[in-house]
Every structure is written in C-alpha cells, then in structure tokens.
Write a protein that binds this DNA or RNA. Sequence first.
DNA 1: CATGAATGAGATTTCATTCAT
DNA 2: AATGAATGAAATCTCATTCAT
Lengths: 221, 221, 221, 221
Amino acid sequence: MNERSFIVAASMATKRNNVLLDRREQILEAALLCFAKCGFHQTSMHDISSEAGISVGLIYRYFKNKEEVIAALAAEHKKNIADLLDRAGKAPTLLEAMEILFTSHCSKTSPQIISAFVVDLFAEASRNPRVAKILRNVVKTKADGVAELIARSPEGRKLAPWLEAHQIAEMIFAVNDGTMMRSVFRASSASVSRQRERQLDVARTLWRLLFSRTSHANGHN
Amino acid sequence: MNERSFIVAASMATKRNNVLLDRREQILEAALLCFAKCGFHQTSMHDISSEAGISVGLIYRYFKNKEEVIAALAAEHKKNIADLLDRAGKAPTLLEAMEILFTSHCSKTSPQIISAFVVDLFAEASRNPRVAKILRNVVKTKADGVAELIARSPEGRKLAPWLEAHQIAEMIFAVNDGTMMRSVFRASSASVSRQRERQLDVARTLWRLLFSRTSHANGHN
Amino acid sequence: MNERSFIVAASMATKRNNVLLDRREQILEAALLCFAKCGFHQTSMHDISSEAGISVGLIYRYFKNKEEVIAALAAEHKKNIADLLDRAGKAPTLLEAMEILFTSHCSKTSPQIISAFVVDLFAEASRNPRVAKILRNVVKTKADGVAELIARSPEGRKLAPWLEAHQIAEMIFAVNDGTMMRSVFRASSASVSRQRERQLDVARTLWRLLFSRTSHANGHN
Amino acid sequence: MNERSFIVAASMATKRNNVLLDRREQILEAALLCFAKCGFHQTSMHDISSEAGISVGLIYRYFKNKEEVIAALAAEHKKNIADLLDRAGKAPTLLEAMEILFTSHCSKTSPQIISAFVVDLFAEASRNPRVAKILRNVVKTKADGVAELIARSPEGRKLAPWLEAHQIAEMIFAVNDGTMMRSVFRASSASVSRQRERQLDVARTLWRLLFSRTSHANGHN
DNA sequence: CATGAATGAGATTTCATTCAT
DNA sequence: AATGAATGAAATCTCATTCAT
C-alpha cells in the first residue's frame, strides 16, 4: 500500500464513517418528529422508518432497540442544552445571556416539536431509569450553568442580593420549564408567534422582577 | 306502590347509585396509581383491573374505553384544581392563599404520584385533543383564579404594581408547573421531604421577589 | 348460599376447570403435531393456533411463551414414559415387559410423529437447559425402571449373569433410542408397517442375544 | 505464452482453487460449530460469518443459501462415515474394527460437538427431503459396511451364527446411534471423559454379548 | 474477491375490546 | 352485575438474502 492508496483508503473510511453518522442522524431526526407527534409509546418503529424513508430493519443496525433511540435523543437533548449554556456564557451582558436561554428552547427544530418531546422525556424519566439519569444530569447542568453565569457577571452579583445565585437559577429554570410545559397545546400555526410572544412575556416579567430591585437601588444612586 | 315502598325504592336507587359511583371511583383510583407508575400507554386495562381487584370487563361497564378513563381522570384533576382555588380564595391573606396553592399539588394522594400523572397528562395533551381541551381549561381556570385573587385582595393590588395581575398569575403557575415537572424523578422515600423542601424554597424565592418591592416601598413610607 | 347452590357452584367450578384443562390439552396436541411436522423452531405460534383452531393470543393464556409449550410437551413425554414403565412392570414375564417397552414408543399418537418430536427434543436438550433437565430425568427413569424390572424378575436374574442389571438396561435403551432415531425418515404410509417390522426385528435380535446364553445354559440342564 | 508463464498460470489456478476450497472448508467448519451450539434454525448466517471471520455476503459466493450449507455438512458427514468404515475395514481383527467404529464418532472435532450436530441432522431429516436422502444413504452405507465386515472376517462368520450379518450390523448401529443421542446433554468438561467411559461401557456390553456365545462355544471345543 | 448496508417478510408477543355465561 | 375466555390487530425485533461499492 503506497501513500496515495493510503490516503484514498483513509478518505474512504472517513466517507463511510460520515455515511454511518448521517444515517444515525437521519433516524434520530425522524424519531424526534414522530415522538413529538405521537409520544414514545404510541410511535411504532415502522412510523419512524417511514418518516425516515428507510426500512424498519435498518433502524436496528444503528440502535439496539427502541429504548436506545429514546436514550440517544435524550443524550442529544443534553448536548443541545450544554451548547445553549455555552452560547449564553459568551454573551456580553447577563441580560443578553438570559435572552438566549429563554428565546431558544433548542436550536434546529421548531420549538413546538421540542417542547412536546421534552415533556414526554420528563414523563418517561419517572419510570425509565436510563432517561431519568440523563435528565437529572440535564437539570443539574442547567442549574449550575446559570448559577455560575449569575455569580460571575457584575450585574448578577448586584441583582436581588438577598437571594443566593442558585436560588435565582432554580427560579429561572422553573419558569423556563413551566412555560415549556404549557406550550404543548398545539397552537394553530397562525398563532405560533403569538404564543411565543406570551412566553417571552412571562420571561420578561421575571426579568423585571429580578432587576427591578437593582434599578430601584440604582435609582437611589 | 305505597309511600313506604317508594321510600325503599328511592333509597335502593340511591344506594345503587352510590355503588355505581363507588365503583367508578375505585376504578379511577386504581387507574391513577397505574398511570402514575407506568404511564398511560404502558398501562394495560388488565393492570388497572388487577389494581382495582375487579375483572377487566367490569371497567367497560363504567367507561367506554381506555381513553374515557384518561379523560375522566383529567376531569377529576380539573375538579381538584377548582377545589384548590376555592380553598385558596377563602384564605384571609394573599400570602396564605398562595401557600395553599403551592403546598398542595393535590389533596388525597401522594404528590409524587400526582406529579408523574400530571406530566403524563400534559404530554398526552399535545396529541389528544380531548385531554388538551380539559387541560387548557385547567390552565385558564388557574390563571384566572389567581389573577382574580390578586386583583381583589388589598395587598395584591399594591404588590409589584408595574405588572398586571394576569402577568403575575402566569408567573406563579409557570413556577408551580416547572417545579412539578422536575419532581418526576423518583426520589428515595427518605429524601422525599427534602425534595419537597427544595420545591418550597423555589416558591418562597418567588414570593420574596413579588413582595420585596412592596415591603421596600412600604419601608420608605 | 344453601347446599344446593354450593353443589351447583362446585360442579360449575369443576366444569370450568375441565374446560381449562381441555384447552391446554388441545393446544399441546396441536403443538405436538406441528413440532413433529416442522420442528420447534420452524413452527410458528400461528401454525399451532391454526392447527388447534383457535386464535394466537389464546395460547398465551395457557402458556407464558413458546418455550413453555415445548417444556410442557417434554413434561408430558416424561409422564408417558413413566406410564409405559408402569405398564411394563405389571407384565407377567420379563419377555412380555420388554415387548411392551419396544412396541409402544408412546400411547396415543402415531409413532412416526412421536419419534420426530422426540429426536427434536434431544436436539433441543443440547442447548435448552430446561428441556435438558427434563430429558435427563426421562433417561434416568427409563434406565432405573428397566434395571429394576430385570433385577426383580426371576428370568432377569439368570439372564446374561456376567452383566450387571444396569448394563443390560442401558443397552436395551440404547437400542431403543437408536432405532427411534432412524425412524424419523418419513416412510411412505404404505411401508409404515414394514418399517415397524424392521424395528421389531432389531429388538428381537437383541432379545435373542440376551436370552441365548440363558437358553443355552438351559439347554445344558 | 511461454512455458514459464503457463506453469505460473497453472499454479495460480491451482492456488486459486485451493483458496476456494479452503474458504469453503473454513465456512463449513464455522457452520458446524454454530449449528452444534445453537441448532440449524437458531443459527443465523451472520453467526456463521462471524465465527468464520468473514462477511455474510461471502458465504453466498460459496453456497447458494443456508440449506446448501446444511446439505454440504450432511455430505461431509457422509464422507466422514465412509472414511471411518474404510479405516475399520483395514483393521486386522473384527474386534479392532469395531473398536474403531465405536471410539470415533468423527475424527477432527470434539465428539460433543459432532453428536449435537448429528442429532440435529436426524431431526432435520424428518422434514428436509434433501437431508433425509443423504442420511438414508449414510445409514445404508454404515449397515452395509459393517455387514460386509462381519461377513468377510473369519471371526464374524462364527459369531452368533443364528443371526444374519445384517441383523448384527443393525444392532451395532442402533446401539451406536442410541448412545450418541444421549451424549447431547452438555456434560461439565470435567466429566466428558467419564461420559465417554460410560458410552464405551455400553459398547463393550454389546461386544461381550455378541462374542460370548462364540467364546463360550469355543470354550467347549 | 470481498464487504456489509439495506430490505422486508415473518416471528413472537401484547392488549384493547367483546360477549357468552 | 360481574367474570374472564377469546379475538385479532398491531408492535417489536430478527434474519435470509441481495447488491452497490
């Protein structure tokens, strides 16, 4: 095997690897859609394969069983949350960071779909230990991430000083999750943006509560 | 038919009615337990009948099908929430009213069970229009109820005056639902009370935020 | 409940019990036929249900899964062998006892079917521990039974005295099993009796070998 | 094309042929192992390919389908039996010939494996005409071979003279097959040799029966 | 020559629902 | 009123076989 053929082989191996990853991604995308539409236990493997445009059997080359598909999506959710926190951490002000956190439930897919899926994920967590483990981690990551965000930003330290960072963080995410939970009601596509508006409204209410004290204090300066 | 026999017949009819209602209640209680433990779609009708100590067929005398059982439980949930609001409405102060709202997810059954069930209910709402309708109503009842509570209480009108009553109400319930969503992680029975502690902690954080402004303002008077 | 109604209830319970047992028997009969025709792992549960004239689901009310059906048939085989030994034990002479052992592989069903099933059973035993356990027991029961038969019959004690009873018993059953193993070749129905003839021929050869010594010895008397 | 290149081409063709044969052999070896371990119909083509360390597709270059693999192994079994008879035919005495027949179920592989496979083969024969044909031939080859062995050896003609050669031959193989059938019970590796001992014990019992008469008769000379 | 991704029919098993008793 | 046997559709998962690379 000369250098050239090595390179060719390597590039082929890479390509093959990409194809494998693409398939996985394709299946997960289809599964997410189906799960959001019908729920885990009312989605059949056939539904997923149809949505993905492949045969049922092929799913089993990439996932050992249905539970693994769910777990993989839960893991992906975890990664998305981590990314979100990363992005929020790079925001110049705390306000902008929170805006990022609240305006994107998740990056790629429609928020409607994501929230239906996530509520199902929490429901599943109450009986599936594997999903529970992942979600517990997600919850902790979120809480810690925001607590740190608050603690290390200059505005954060001044805001509502009679509360600890982690208390504020828990509040923020309680509001976040609660809002998401309500968003499962399928809104007519026309009012999706209006629903979004209302969600942001709640978020802004929270911000005002958190910052009013500060601005009030500032007003005394 | 003389008067006596009429009374007997009436009392028999009443008794019969009570038996019917008891059976219904018995089935719903069993169903709630099963649903909380396994989820709607992983609970079989046989599971419910076993839990209730009756035969499968009997369930179908009281409910047309599985979906009706779910819907009936959703309706019961709605009634429980209405009762809760009633009780809260009778509290002497707004603070006490909120305490009632936050400390009891539901009366009879363990909060762990209730929250697992309610999260499932929200998940179900995203695809089952009937459940969605009931839950939408629940959400509206809660929001309106609290908004009214705030609007008509003397403290309420002073608290966070730059926010409308309905905005505050939405916040309160977002926090309420968000905390509940996290409580699905089956905690070891030992730490159930500790978990409850933390949930109340979040609620108290919110209260302080809501009332701080007022007390602060009051402090300046 | 008076005596009459008790009797009625009891008789109904008995009847119901019989129905249950009949169903079980019906399923096992169908399964035996299918297994003999196609082998355990090429017989589908649907094949069995069709043969029995019932629905697939019903099988699962009586057997937890396919393996339980196989195990139940293995257990029945064990019982049949025990019955056979019982009958042989009641024969007046050892010769007649052996005739019983050799001429009936099993009572009710055609020997063709039984032998195909039993060979499958042995094949299964080499990987299915549960079936192995049952068959080991069958083999031991057979060996012990015949050894005792020989040991306690007057002719038996004289026959081939340089051999121990258990050695002779093992021989007899090795021949028995070996003959059965060959009988799996589906003979045209015309030659079934001829095949049976040849099997008996082998058995008689064995008998002559075992008794020749005796008759020879007797010849010297 | 010069002589050299012809030779090279020829040797390459031979080599290629050898490779082909080797692959076939490699696949059959793997298949035998898998079949013995799991049975024909519980062994997947993937199992075989894994065991052989090749891809699934490659099996189909050498065998049309799964059934052909089974048939090829049945044919190999036939060849092994023929070899065994050949070797037995070259033994100086009948006793030694029989020892050869009884002590080696098959040359290369462990007897445990072979017997599990052969019992499966017989089970298969009861429904697969192709396998049945091969096994019928095997049975006939064995019977004829031993009958001839007996008929043409000097001791053979004297032994149990009241029986025909073919009757004795059938007996011998009935015992042979019967013992093999029992050997399917997976013995703990420790007691494999002890199990082997017991099998030989049965064989020796048979021998003594067959020869006792002669030696007895001889004793009278 | 060799691979293994892909297919899709088919196997096992479950379960909502009905209905004779 | 109450039972639970019976049905059969549907779900999950497997596997022999093909074929593009």
